[in-house]
């Protein structure tokens, strides 16, 4: 039996899969980043077809609106990104293919064997959903929520430590730092003045 929701699910799911494929197929790393945008929006659409309105908005707000922008920002700051000749390397493809097949089959098996609960009632309205989610985050799921935030904090501190540690050796800066350049210029001009 085919339920009518398949006509919503199928286009969204195939769009998500196609764009995800394009993310890994694109030779241009910025294009790959931009293919992620329709992919994330298609996933937001899937949330919408499940009537999880809050997740639709959060998916767009956090993933499409903030995280992807940060990814693109980091990509644009990398070197040689404007160079079209640079190629993506796929030298680990022989290793990745069996791994992907294994993970895919394992996931499919798990999903096939999982006892999916039947839908008991119509989904609650967005306001009730949001409320239930908020109460769940400070009630039943407080511990996982706090652990996740702790992990994120650790990642944040780690990133700061890495960025600080990189500054110390006198390596050429890959990022244009205007203040550094101004200081350099000032020291050069001061040196020239001393020479006179």
């Amino acid at each position: 039996m085919i339920s009518p929701s398949i006509f919503v699910f199928a286009p969204l799911a195939s769009a998500a899969l196609f764009t995800a494929l394009m993310v890994v197929r694109s030779r241009n790393v910025i294009h790959a980043g931009y293919w992620l945008l329709p992919c994330l929006l298609a996933v937001a659409g899937l949330f919408g077809s499940l009537e999880a309105h809050f997740f639709v908005v959060v998916q767009i707000l956090i993933y499409a609106g903030a995280i992807l922008i940060l990814i693109l920002f980091a990509l644009m700051l990398t070197r040689d990104v404007m160079d079209p000749k640079q190629r993506q390397t796929t030298k680990f493809a022989p290793l990745a293919v069996p791994l992907c097949i294994f993970v895919g089959l394992g996931g499919a098996l798990m999903m096939a064997r999982a006892p999916w609960p039947a839908i008991q009632a119509a989904a609650p309205g967005p306001a009730e959903q949001t409320k239930a989610l908020g109460l769940g985050l400070i009630g039943d799921y407080a511990l996982p929520f706090e652990v996740a935030s702790l992990i994120l904090l650790a990642a944040l501190i780690g990133a700061i430590c890495l960025a600080k540690a990189e500054k110390e050796p006198a390596a050429p800066e890959p990022v244009i730092d205007l203040r550094g350049e101004i200081e350099l210029e000032e020291s050069v001009s001061a040196g020239a003045a001393d020479g006179h």
Partner: peptide, 20 residues
């Protein structure tokens, strides 16, 4: 609703808290 955060109707909470 304020005093009983730990006992929301589980039938409505569980399916939607799982993806979160």
């Amino acid at each position: 609703a304020i005093s009983a955060p730990a006992t929301p109707p589980s039938g409505t909470l569980t399916p939607m808290a799982a993806p979160g």
